[in-house]
Write a protein that binds this DNA or RNA. Structure first.
Lengths: 196, 196, 196, 196
DNA sequence: TATGAATGAGTTTTCATTCAT
DNA sequence: AATGAATGAAAACTCATTCAT
């Protein structure tokens, strides 16, 4: 019976979030009012704050969830038995796909935080990825697949820059194509060259 | 001598407009305040209203100007001596290029007007283009280049739909490529087929 | 229990309206600020807009209410069993009295709308009265009390002009006296003259 | 030739004042903008301040002029050879007439000063009148026409109160009639009663 | 827990007044 | 002396968030 309550709460939260995100995409974050979200969700305005701390929190929660999902995927990739370079490819493409699907909301969130630098916390993505990447890159270096003359941290930073630069690209090239090109170039450069 | 005053006014108006549009693109329309525009333009807040009737008017004025420029290009194309199908191609590509360059501002304007249906007037585009198109399509039909079994108005409506559908496309295909494909298909269908 | 809430709302609305109208009469419409109204009502400034759409709306609402009250009086007069001329007298004097009591607010409203022609809707008075008047005048004509050689509409228009001209009179004559004189003259002219 | 200039200046000042007062009466003081006055006077906005110190100064100047005219009339009455009571009557009626003609502007001015207590100086009327009144009342007391058991200052204050109370009267009675009644009562009470 | 009224900070906009030309 | 652009203070209005019921 406590369960019924619990399930209902989750449903309501989901419902508010869905409506809100729909509005955010349609009208932009600032131009969406809490009142109209709750009107559309057929709930009182004040109820919003029983489920979210702020308007921004809806975005934050959604993106955090997406990022957790992504993290799980990354962990699965890490656990798999492919080559390190193969893992890196998979990771980057998975991250890219996840980003592409939520590109607008993600940018909205970033923009909001550029304007309100003190507001909520950042979506906790970077740090989590980094640990996984460290593992993989180290593995690749130990296996002799990756160059050892470049510090691991630099490699990781560069790797993450691939996603970053593609996210903010102004080129007409489709996102995933763009990403693949950069990845190819990066892996080529990272590989240890065998003497002929 | 009255000229100095006049020139300065134009410069200031341009300067306000430039700063404003830059902010619009960077932060969005609603999130840009008149105060910050004028701060960046190093002028008093109230001065804004000596040059523009409202924040929206900056967008409107800019787009109106762009559309007038586009109209001049279209008229030049109409005056030229190519084949009607050639003219249609040029027109569509010119219009597409003009739109692509200002896509964000244009969409911003549309969104604002969807939310404030009573605000400013629409940028006066459609009607002006139509007259020019009527001329060209008619010419093509008379010359035997275009099919006569489809009403001119329908042809024009479809032609304009090419731009429209591309403007709102969600495909990753680059805008101009997308447009070119549709144009190719459209012209092919419009052409009079000669018996072999 | 929902009733307490509801009753409080009505009381607050009334209180804001009362304070506002008092200020309007004392300082004029434009010179009264929403902030000072709400200060005097001991409420936050923003609260004003939970009850009224705009400063102008306070005036509009009040006058609309007054006009509805007047309409009820007119309907009662129409239902009564006096002579048509008697009814016309009563109507005019009732309307006059109602107007006289709210003369200042009414003029304030008119002035505001002359300056802001697009603002709120007019207080809905004319049309409603007209139907009642048509009934009475027709009745008078059928009973042989009123002349039939003048169209009903003209008679009504003239009748309504009595109030109008008195409302805008610059004469020092007291309003109701002025109105009574005009009414007397009007009814005299409207009466069917019996042959001696 | 200096004269031409001088005359022109006076004409312009008069013209601005006329236009401004017309607007004040039509739309109210606050709702009249300096820009629209000068637009109607076919002059640049800034030119206004070459002739008047502020918007309020137009009212002030006009009323000061009217009051000076009134003062001259009062002085003439004082110089005349009538009875003191006769002089008081004439003074009050002259003052009343002068006020009645400019009632609206006068009230506008008073209202403005109630709201902006620090603004311009008061129209310099009271003090000037008082001296004249002191002379007349004293004369009346010395001649045995007025009661001596009431201090002169009190008599004057009461006398001035007659005008004041009539100015702010809500009665429908015409202004001058109202004033005459009060004057009659006042003079009757002031007169020395002769034993029968 | 759900509600919606209250609030005040933040934004747009107006306009009297100043001042450089 | 005439002008009109620049200015900022003040006012209307919106809305995220709080809180009493």
């Amino acid at each position: 019976m406590n369960n019924r309550r619990e399930r209902k709460k989750i449903l309501i939260k989901k419902s508010i979030s869905d409506v809100a995100l729909k509005f955010f995409l349609a009208k932009g974050f600032t131009d969406t009012t809490v009142a109209e979200i709750m009107e559309a969700a057929d709930l009182g305005t004040g109820t919003f704050y029983n489920y979210f701390q702020s308007k921004e929190d809806v975005l934050h929660s959604y993106l955090t969830e997406k990022i957790n999902e992504a993290r799980h995927i990354l962990e699965a990739i890490q656990q798999s038995h492919g080559e390190p370079s193969q893992k890196l490819s998979e990771i980057l493409l998975a991250a890219g796909k996840s980003y592409e699907e939520n590109r607008q909301l993600f940018n909205m969130y970033m923009q909001f935080h550029r304007q309100n630098p003190d507001a909520g916390r950042q979506p906790p993505h970077g740090p989590l990825f980094k640990e996984i990447l460290v593992d993989i890159v180290s593995e690749g270096q130990e296996k002799g697949e990756f160059r050892k003359d470049i510090p691991t941290a630099i490699i990781i930073e560069m790797f993450m820059g691939l996603l970053q630069s593609t996210m903010t690209s102004y080129l007409p090239t489709p996102f995933m194509d763009n990403l693949r090109h950069k990845l190819s170039l990066f892996l080529e450069g990272l590989a240890v060259k065998h003497q002929p």
